[in-house]
Amino acid sequence: MSDWLDFFWRSIPVFLNGLWVTLELTAVGLIVGFGLGLAAALGRVYGSPWVRRICIAYIEIFRGTPLLVQLFLIYYGFPGIGITLSRMMSAYLTLGLNSGAYQAEYLRGAIMAVSEGQMMAGRSIGLSRLASIRYVILPQALRLVIPSWSNEPILLLKSTAVAFLIAVPDLMTKAKLIAARTYDPIGTYLAVAVVYLVIVGLLNEVMKALERRLRIPGLEIESHKP
């Protein structure tokens, strides 16, 4: 028993180390994904036919294939065509591209929920198309997207767990190490599950607070067609 306890204490820093990498993966994936997602959503709604097709292809390909397969293609497959990325870079890139495709769909939904009339109103006072998107459509769409978007950080956090299959030193990799040392995989993975649960719970609270903070009276998703 004391052996076990001793080991438990010694594993905590290892876990924390892995947790930090997990959070890093989540944060980078989320930010890269937001940039890509916003660009793809705008391209899909307002772009020329070709831009639109490219955006749709990106979104459908990354939503239509497993994250793990994308990760392997980028980490193991890309060197075959002369692009070699480190484990971390591969994980960042895959998570960003994958999350971007999902975020694009949330954002597109929100942009389309801001009625066409808003664009017309913007144009009617002399704002250009671009200025109308920037000052009229986006400020509303970015608020409207929050309820659906707020799932993404949690989904992404959970998705990062597959990165251990290319040996990124995240929570799961550390768990695998500890499980091999303790011969207690069930206990170890249960401990990891608890860590994930706690982070997911915290993220949930943060998102709820964000939703409350940014609420505007009368601005909710509703289908008021022009």
């Binding site: 390909i61 497993p66 397969v69 293609l73 193991y76």
Partner: peptide
């Protein structure tokens, strides 16, 4: 795909095919 990649030394082709099948 992983086994194929090892035997054929064509990792991009192997994993690309896997992605395509999933799609």
């Amino acid at each position: 795909a992983q086994q194929l990649s090892a035997t054929t030394q064509q990792p991009f082709l192997a994993y690309g095919t896997a992605a395509l099948i999933y799609f």
